[in-house]
Design a protein around this nucleic acid. Structure first.
Lengths: 209, 209
DNA sequence: AAAATGTTTAACAATTTTGTTAACGCAAAG
DNA sequence: CTTTGCGTTAACAAAATTGTTAAACATTTT
């Protein structure tokens, strides 16, 4: 029973994730989600009470998982170069799985600006990570491996280079005439492109972990 | 009469643009648009037949205007550095006016993938611009001002660095604690950050047009 | 196996949203 | 002055969508 419950509940969640984040069908109705999952529409209300609550749950779980991975990376003792390298991997992987997550996120945040805050880590943790990162960036700047830049711009650069190509998939595809295979290849190339763009000269001594 | 017609039609279009692109209210209903514009809802159908056609018109006009500007820049005889510099200005300016345009674009494209093609320039023009750009990039690579990179990644880098900060406004704002003023300041700073990130060392001789 | 508990379904109700239409008002043309 | 045509409005109709409920079904517990 608890098994079947979990089965159906997960099925609905996974289907919603697929529709929202993979297919970009942000306005998917409860009926569409139910059809796609092959369950009765009322079950969505049975398990999640309302469409909005389903949204919220799916969103929080997905972001929570990502955040954990990122916190783990930036809390580690690794070099900045390696941290960034790992960050890129995670973001590009996630974006290959859920190309429309970012886009969806923004749309949702505009609807409910209050909920933005819940999605971010607690102040102390953020501050701690910020200090570590700040220090490492200053080191890199001092040794000339990156140009002088604020931590804000550095992070926004990083996120931009990783995320935008996924968000803008239809445009990039059409603009350069990529089919699905070509586009995936392009995405995988970005791993190195982003690293190269963030660090003026790849530092091989640091690259060896 | 033709005047009043144009007045109301433009008023509706401008209001729709404001709601869609400025406020990010992508799912604005015809009623909301009408209320915001202070006109009767039926007028939207009178002038545009359906909500979808209003969408389409507003979208095409906005993109058309942007595309013209970009084509103009890249068709010019300017140096690559200056072209990029002007490109950044236009994109950041447009994004300050219409922060949610990109986001909206993606959402719409996902709904109607067929319409993506209409939004892009004709093949010949695209090819011509591509050849010019390719040549200039190769020159810059040869003279060491930018690292070896394909035209596709170069352009995607550029668009990412300009557009993402706008798309992700709510996240960036919250993450770094920017209010509206602080965020706008951050955006204006990006002009130089993007240039610096795209070109390993700013080339001052070229910078003087 | 009867009761209890939890899951699923179909039918219904309520709401929201879009699209249509007939009538009204007004300005220009005849 | 009245007729014509366009812009506007309110009221109506239709469709889509969400949420609720009572009954059917399945399972576990006693």
């Amino acid at each position: 029973m608890a098994e079947k419950t979990q089965q159906t509940e997960d099925l609905i969640k996974e289907t919603a994730m697929r529709l929202f984040f993979q297919k970009g069908h942000i306005n998917a109705t409860t009926q569409e989600i139910a059809d796609e999952a092959g369950v009765n529409r009322a079950l969505i209300h049975y398990y999640f009470r309302s469409r909005d609550l389903l949204f919220e749950k799916v969103l929080h779980e997905t972001l929570g998982a990502t955040r954990e991975k990122i916190d783990y990376i930036f809390s580690s003792q690794d070099t900045l170069y390696n941290k960034i390298s790992r960050f890129i991997d995670i973001f590009i992987d996630q974006n290959i799985d859920y190309p429309y997550l970012e886009n969806f996120l923004v749309t949702e945040m505009v609807k409910n600006p209050d909920k933005v805050k819940e999605l971010h880590p607690v102040e102390e943790k953020r501050e701690k990570l910020r200090r570590i990162l700040e220090e490492q960036i200053q080191e890199e700047i001092a040794s000339g491996r990156i140009e002088p830049i604020s931590i804000e711009h550095f992070m926004v650069n990083l996120m931009s280079l990783c995320n935008y190509p996924l968000i803008a998939k239809p445009m990039v595809q059409n603009f350069f005439g990529y089919d699905e295979v070509g586009y995936k290849k392009f995405l995988l190339e970005r791993r190195n492109v982003v690293l190269q763009t963030m660090f003026k000269q790849p530092n091989f001594s640091e690259n060896i972990k």
